[in-house]
Simulated assay, not measured.
Amino acid sequence: MLRIIAGKLKGRKIEEPDLNIVRPTTDRVRESIFSSIQFEIEGTKVLDLFSGSGAISFEFISRGAKEVFSSEKNRKVFNLIEKNQKKLNIENLFLFNVEAFQMIELFKEKKFDFIYLDPPYNEVTLLEETCKKILENDILDEHGTLIVETNTEKIKFSDEFLIDKKKKYGKTFVFFIKKR
């Protein structure tokens, strides 16, 4: 079981998916990410790509995000996120059983205050291509933040992005990125 760290759902537990399929973001990393942005979340629109356990989406909802759009392509994992959403009685989380590129295309007319990317570790090309798609479709708000969780520093971000902060937690790197 994973627990929601803070906000109106603080302490509530969600079932976690098979660890052979996904790698949930640890409590320590989630806590640090959200402490960095806690005063910016209220009333925001969030896109959570590669949702995995859904814990990041639930944390955003718990801390006051207005709407969270979450994509997970694995049907079994998607069903578990949906089950957890019902258990927590959350109405402003919109789940999609599609891969990240499809999700970006679906919402190319929308702007997000936060976009969270946590693709499978060691999938640097997928991460870089997803960042390119986000720029091409212009879905990150002018003052928005792209948050990237990965296991490497060796990522080629577009020159249109500015790394605002970079943090390291063990083998995990988290980048907070803005548009230039």
Rank of each mutant, 00 (worst) to 15 (best):
D18C: 11
N122P: 05
F114M: 03
E123V: 00
L127I: 07
E136Q: 15
N89S: 12
P24Y: 14
E31F: 07
F60V: 04
Y169T: 05
K86W: 15
K13L: 07
G43P: 10
T145D: 01
D164C: 06
I139E: 13
Q38E: 02
I177P: 03
K10T: 05
T125F: 14
F39Y: 13
V174Y: 04
L49K: 15
E136V: 11
E105F: 04
K111S: 11
K171A: 08
K110W: 05
N122Y: 11
N84R: 01
I134G: 10
L117Y: 04
K178I: 08
D27S: 11
I104W: 13
L135E: 15
V174R: 01
I115C: 00
I33F: 11
L146A: 06
N122W: 06
L140N: 07
I147E: 12
D118E: 02
N84A: 12
K166S: 13
L47F: 15
K110H: 11
K66P: 00
N79A: 08
D164A: 09
G11Y: 00
F112Y: 04
L146Q: 03
G52Q: 12
N92T: 15
G11A: 00
V68L: 07
A6C: 03
Q85T: 13
L80F: 05
I115Y: 06
I155W: 01
K13V: 04
D18M: 14
K178Q: 06
F94W: 06
E142T: 02
E72S: 09
N97A: 12
F101R: 08
L126W: 10
R23N: 09
A100Y: 15
I5T: 05
K166H: 12
R3N: 05
M1E: 04
D159Y: 15
K45F: 04
I37L: 06
K111Y: 07
K13E: 06
N151A: 05
N20M: 08
A100Q: 13
K110E: 09
L126C: 09
E16Q: 04
F107M: 10
E40M: 09
S71M: 13
G43K: 12
N84W: 04
